[in-house]
Simulated assay, not measured.
Amino acid sequence: MITCVLHYTIDPRQIDAFERFAREWIRLVGDHGGIHHGYFLPAEGASDRAEALFSFPSLAAYERYRARFGTDPEFIAADRIRDESGCVIRYERTFMRPLLPSD
């Protein structure tokens, strides 16, 4: 399993647009073989930070999902929310492998 951790700098004035953007990506990750662990939005402290985590069974599965960017109409529409609203100022993507509790 590989987990993608996204660190966002967001425009706090565009939090509603960011939530619409996030809900679309939660759905798209699930529709294309991944497990979305959620978006984590500002509650206290810095109001311009958000995080997201999602996993795929392998790097190859993630790469099949990534191949849809820029070509799949649903992926393009989800990115349009971000682009038109300006809700995301910057983001960084890191890949991690989870260490899960043992039974």
Rank of each mutant, 00 (worst) to 15 (best):
A52C: 12
R82E: 04
L59K: 07
L28P: 05
R97L: 13
W25S: 03
S55H: 00
S102N: 11
A77E: 02
I35P: 01
V29G: 00
A46W: 01
E24T: 10
R97M: 15
M1Y: 12
D79Q: 12
A43F: 14
A46R: 13
S102Q: 15
R27W: 03
I76R: 11
S102V: 10
R82G: 09
A60H: 09
V29F: 04
R82T: 04
A67N: 04
Y91N: 14
L53N: 08
T9N: 09
H7Q: 10
S85L: 01
F69Y: 14
A61H: 07
Y39K: 00
F75M: 13
V88Q: 02
F56E: 00
D11L: 01
V29R: 02
R66D: 12
F54P: 04
H36S: 11
R82W: 07
D79Y: 15
I10Y: 04
T71M: 12
A67I: 13
F56K: 01
A77P: 03
E63W: 07
T94K: 11
R80L: 05
I35K: 15
I15F: 07
P98N: 14
E84F: 08
P12F: 08
A50Y: 06
R49Q: 08
R90D: 13
A22L: 09
A50G: 01
R66Q: 14
D48R: 06
M1R: 12
M96D: 07
T71D: 11
M1I: 10
I76N: 04
D48L: 02
E44R: 13
Y62A: 06
M1W: 11
T3I: 02
I35L: 12
P12N: 07
M96R: 15
E84T: 09
R20Q: 15
Y65N: 01
I89N: 06
A67S: 15
V29E: 02
T71Q: 14
D72A: 09
L100M: 11
S85A: 10
D83F: 10
I35Y: 15
F40Q: 03
T3A: 08
R64N: 03
F69Q: 07
P101M: 13
H32R: 13
D72R: 12
Y8Q: 02
R90F: 12
Q14T: 05
R49I: 11
A50T: 01
G34W: 01
R13A: 15
Y65H: 10
A17F: 03
D83W: 15
A52K: 02
M1N: 13
F40T: 10
R80E: 07
G38A: 09
S47E: 14
D72N: 05
I81P: 04
L6I: 15
